[in-house]
Amino acid sequence: MLNEFIYNIAVWLDDTRWSTMLHESYYMYNWVESTHVLTLMLSLGMLFLIDLRMLGLALPDVPASRIAQRLNLPMLVGFSVMVITGILLFYAVPVRSAQSVWMRIKLVLMVGLLINAILFHKKMNAAGANWDNEPKAPRNLRIGAMLSLGGWAIVVTCGRFIAYDWFDCIYTDSEFIAFVAGCLDDQTRF
């Protein structure tokens, strides 16, 4: 039911003129994809420094809350660009993207990481300032930072895997993969 709904939405998007134009424009598609990948340097670059600071592995002699507060804005700018370019990439190839196992894992993980980030900030604000100059953050914040680092590493890996067609609905024989990818028996578009 849900998979059918997602498929129908994807087919509708696929039928729009702009989707075809974006997909078939060699330069535009590559510009969008390059921007999506290169913005990693800003978004994940800042995030890694914040998380590594919490673990005591980066900038240990700079107050942790200062790092988190100052790098937050550029990190969010980077993530905003990634979300916009990510939506455009999805829009360019909607049916295949909607039925990609890796895209689905990536999206679920990103929701989890968003919740982790919100909890992390709440805990950081609640922890007060008495640990700020310590090389390592309190244990609960370190766990949050490790989850964030590991989670984003998997997100990047899934993002990279989307480009490969190992588990595409048109090729897969596995019922499990077809279930996770949301493949439909009577689908005509891939």
């Binding site: 340097m41 978004s43 994940l44 550029p74 990279r160």
Partner: peptide, 30 residues
């Protein structure tokens, strides 16, 4: 593909370290 992903993670760390350090020199960050 997995090594490619690690390449991208390295790129992200390089970007972060360059942008923060150069941002400090430019008077933008920290």
């Amino acid at each position: 593909a997995t090594i490619q992903a690690f390449h991208l993670l390295g790129l992200a760390l390089l970007g972060g370290s360059v942008l923060v350090a150069e941002g400090r020199l430019l008077g933008v960050f920290l």
